[in-house]
Design a protein around this nucleic acid. Structure first.
Ligand code: ZN
Ligand code: ZN
Ligand code: ZN
Ligand code: ZN
Lengths: 159, 159
DNA sequence: TCACGATTTGTTATGTTATAACATTCATCG
DNA sequence: CGATGAATGTTATAACATAACAAATCGTGA
C-alpha cells in the first residue's frame, strides 16, 4: 500500500526530505526553484493536505511573496508541471506529490468530511480505459483518477 | 468497446431513444422530468459533447426556460443525480450519459482539441485504488476517471 | 373545495476559481 | 553595457458555482 496520508508519520522529516529532493532535482534539471515556488511547495508539504490556490496565496502573501492570484497559479503550475505537486480536479485543489522521485499517474482518495487526501498509485497499464482509447485512436496525454468518500476517522464521527 | 462519442451514428435516433428512456424511467421512479430538466437533457443529447453550465443556460434561456445560473445548475444536478448525465470534473462540464440504463462508473476520454467526449466503462473492480482504499479503511462513494488527450480528428489537424 | 406541505422555479446577490494582458525586474551572457 | 529570456508584479475580468429567499405549482387528505 502506498496511500500516504491517513497514517501517522514523522512529518518534519517528511517535509525536509521532500524539499531537499526538490532542490536536488531542480539543480539537476536546471529548473529554478525560486522563493515563491519553494515556499508554495513547503506550504503544501507542511499542511499535507489538499489546498486551494487562494488559500496558498494567502500564506504566500503573509510572507510577502506576492499577493495576486497569478502568483499562486504560476507557482502551482510550475510544481505540477514538474511533478512536485498534483492538481486534484474534483475539489479544485493542489497537494504535494507523495513520491516525486518516480514518474507515475497519481490516484487520490479524497475525504469529503475532513478534506484529507491520500495519494495512491495506479496501474501504469490503464486497463479498459487504455483499451478504449486504442480502439478509437484516441491519444491519452493525462489521466485523472480520484475517489471521493469518507476516511476512517470521518466514518466514525459523522460530523 | 463502449466508447461512444467519436464514431458516426444515427444521432436523431440516438436522441429520441435516450429521451424516451428518460421519460419512461422518470415515470417508473416517480421522478419529475419537468420542462427545464427535459430540455436540458435534450440539449446535452443534441450536442453530444461536454457543455458548460452557462452554455446550457443560454440555450435554456433562448427557449424562455429560465435565465439565471441556479436554473441550469438545478436541472443539471437532477440529471446527474439520477444518472441521465455526468459531470466531467476536468473541464467543469456536463454530458449526457451514454448508457443510462445501467448502473456504472463512467470513464471519459476528453479531447482537448475539440472538446468531444467519449464515455467508456471502467472495470467495476477498482483495481489498485480499491485495494488502497480497503487497506486504509477508506469508504469510496464515487470514482472519477478521466483521460485527456487528442481524438483522431484533432491529431490530424493540430488546430 | 380548500388548506397543507412538498417540490420546483424565479430572482437577486455574492462567493469562488482562474486567466488575459501588459509592465517591470532580474540574471545571464556576448 | 545592452540584448535576451525567465520570472514576477499588477490590474482587470472571465468563468464557474451557490446562498438565500420569494413565488408558483401540485398532489393529497380534511
Ligand atoms: Zn508528512
Ligand atoms: Zn476525513
Ligand atoms: Zn448520438
Ligand atoms: Zn454514463
Amino acid at each position: 500500500m502506498t496511500a500516504i496520508g491517513f497514517e501517522k508519520h514523522d512529518h518534519n522529516r517528511c517535509i525536509a526530505t521532500a524539499l531537499a529532493e526538490a532542490e536536488t532535482r531542480c539543480a539537476d534539471q536546471k529548473l529554478q526553484l525560486t522563493p515563491v515556488r519553494r515556499r508554495a511547495l513547503e506550504i503544501l508539504l507542511q499542511r499535507h493536505r489538499a489546498m486551494g490556490a487562494y488559500e496558498i496565496l494567502d500564506l504566500l502573501a503573509a510572507d510577502g511573496l506576492g499577493s495576486q492570484p497569478p502568483v499562486a497559479y504560476r507557482a502551482l503550475d510550475f510544481l505540477v508541471q514538474h511533478g512536485f505537486a498534483h492538481r486534484i480536479e474534483r475539489i479544485n485543489a493542489y497537494t504535494a506529490c507523495a513520491h516525486p522521485e518516480q514518474d507515475h499517474i497519481p490516484a487520490f482518495l479524497i475525504c469529503r468530511g475532513c478534506k484529507a487526501v491520500a495519494e495512491a498509485e495506479t496501474e501504469l497499464e490503464q486497463g479498459r480505459l487504455g483499451a478504449a482509447a486504442q480502439a478509437t485512436g484516441f491519444a491519452i496525454e493525462r489521466i485523472v483518477v480520484e475517489a471521493e468518500g469518507l476516511c476512517p476517522a470521518c466514518q466514525e464521527h459523522p460530523a
